[in-house]
Design a binder for these strands. Structure first.
Length: 483
RNA sequence: GGUCCCAUCGUCUAGUGGCCCAGGACGCCGCCCUCUCAAGGCGGAAACACGGGUUCAAAUCCCGUUGGGACUACCA
């Protein structure tokens, strides 16, 4: 697979821009991209937007955006062009038309005059007879006279591909040799009666014309591989090598569907997952390097990824493991980087960050406390607003501690000079000593008063960042609420 | 219904006939650390779907059963 030993490997990802791309597709894209990058080959992005009515410009941009965010890039695509342009199927219609004619010329495609109603009827009849329900090939065997009758009636027609009646073997890089017996693959529609090409024509033509060498996709498309290959062969081309990946399932082990909520890449981004974490996690869904390595950087994946180590069984998406990985990657981020990534999540909840230095200074306090970036506002809110309303638990703690305790704390903290974490810490210890209770008992009411919650980053660091004045104000305000 | 794919802890997986009374990771449980919550450390419970073969030896090979899934569209 090295560039020196053979033709350049060309892989592609061909999403339909119908909304956003879900994690199953994202993994297909990732694996395909990894194969290309590992082999120093070419990665092609092609957009399957033949169903133009449903495709919006926004959905199109969303797909590209999701891939870019994930960390994937491409050498040829609709946005950057390339030697096999255009890369949107909606702009390749004349190409499909041209190849349809070639297929008709060579006798590999024919007009099918069967109406949807007739097809439906025959399908049902076959089913009740216990026979396979596929197209029976009727119009393929029409005599010239019969055909003429339909033409004279001006019946509308679709074009079907005449599937050669022989066994087909797909030598799949993941599944191995898969045999499809003669007769199992029926003649399929390649151009609809409205003249539009179907996926089965477009994919074959595009893969052939774009000189794709490796098609890596979900195994729901396994049965279409022999059809793709047959069309390409009929067109005089050489079919690519196929690799069909086992499905990505929802957390419940069922196929991904609306039931699982938002499983789009975009949704994970919005929830505060890091792209490096998602990529790492997705790589591990159906692939492993050895018996123990879990963390892989983008470059390590490129270096190590190999289809021969792709699992044969479907994989359930485990959000908890993703969360754990995400926390790991968050911990790897430096203060500036983490602050920059958190910022949008804070402003999104209405918090105004006027002091970036303060935000940056808070990073060490929250870094290992977040599974996702979207948890940041909850942890940092007390620093960026003075609108602190103690929750129920916090209120109870404050009342139980009493006004005296809070005022004592305020007194002690006001005396801290210079204002440092150590100084704050010493003052808190003095408070503990003076009251003669445990740190937990002495400090929790303080935490409640300054953060409004029973959970917060470490107290001394939090108070230090809050500042002497604001801390004092909050403690005394809390004390004042107790009658 | 037919064809095809798949089957190791709850989950992701290691395992290509002996190194496996099955290893790692997430999750779970316990302990430690500890100002809350986390993070971290240590320890624990937890799997070869079932039944037949083949073999000196099977999680690993073969057959069957069961169970999942895909396909069987003028969807992609």
């Amino acid at each position: 697979m090295s560039p020196e030993t053979g033709p350049t490997i060309r892989c592609r990802f061909a999403p339909a821009p119908s909304g956003s791309i879900h994690v199953g597709n994202a993994r297909s894209a990732l694996f395909s991209w990894l194969v290309a990058r590992h082999a120093a080959g070419t990665f092609v992005l092609r957009v399957e937007d033949t169903d133009a009515s449903r495709v919006t410009e926004e959905a199109y941009r969303g797909v590209l955006g999701s891939l870019t965010w994930l960390g994937l890039d491409w050498d040829e695509g609709p946005d950057i062009g390339g030697t096999h342009a255009p890369y949107r199927q909606s702009q390749r219609l004349d190409l499909y038309q041209e190849h349809l004619h070639a297929l008709v010329e060579s006798g590999d495609a024919y007009r099918c005059y069967c109406t949807p109603e007739e097809l439906d009827e025959r399908r049902k009849a076959a089913l009740t007879r216990g026979e396979p329900p596929g197209y029976d090939g009727r119009c393929r065997r029409l005599t010239d006279q019969e055909r003429q009758v339909f033409e004279d009636e001006r019946r509308s027609f679709a074009y079907r591909f005449a599937m050669p009646e022989r066994d087909w073997v797909v030598d799949d890089l993941v599944k191995g040799e898969v045999t499809f017996r003669a007769g199992m693959l029926r003649d399929f529609v390649i151009v609809r009666s409205d003249g539009s090409p179907t996926f089965l024509l477009a994919v074959a033509v595009d893969d052939m014309l774009m000189a794709i060498t490796h098609v890596i996709r979900g195994d729901d498309l396994l049965a279409s591989a022999p059809r793709n290959a047959a069309v390409i062969q009929a067109l005089g081309g050489t079919p690519p090598t196929y690799a069909h990946l086992p499905q990505v399932l929802g957390g419940d082990g069922k196929p991904l569907s609306k039931r699982h909520g938002s499983t789009s890449v975009e949704a994970f981004r919005e929830q505060g997952y890091l792209p490096e974490a998602l990529m790492n996690y997705l790589a591990l869904l159906g692939w492993s390097w050895d018996d123990e390595t879990t963390f892989f950087s983008r470059d390590e994946l490129i270096e190590r990824f190999d289809l021969s180590r792709v699992s044969h069984n479907p994989a359930a998406f485990d959000t908890q493991k993703l969360e754990w990985l995400n926390n790991h990657y968050i911990q790897q981020l430096g203060d500036d980087e983490l602050a920059a990534r958190i910022l949008p999540f804070l402003t999104q909840t209405g918090l105004l960050i006027d002091d970036l230095a303060e935000l940056r200074a808070a990073m060490p306090l929250v870094r290992e406390r977040m599974k996702t970036l979207s948890e940041a506002p909850l942890l940092l809110r007390f620093l960026f607003t003075d609108d602190i309303e103690p929750d129920e638990k916090a209120t109870k703690l404050i009342e139980k501690a009493g006004a005296e305790h809070l005022r004592t704390a305020a007194d002690l903290l006001e005396q801290v000079d210079p204002w440092s974490v150590d100084g704050v810490s010493a003052a808190l210890d003095a408070l503990t000593e003076r009251t003669g209770v445990s740190r937990t008992k002495a400090w929790q009411p303080i935490r409640a008063a300054i953060s409004g919650s029973t959970v917060s980053p470490p107290l001394d660091g939090s108070i230090h960042l809050l500042g002497k004045q604001r801390t004092s104000t909050r403690l005394r305000a809390a004390a004042a609420t107790i009658s």
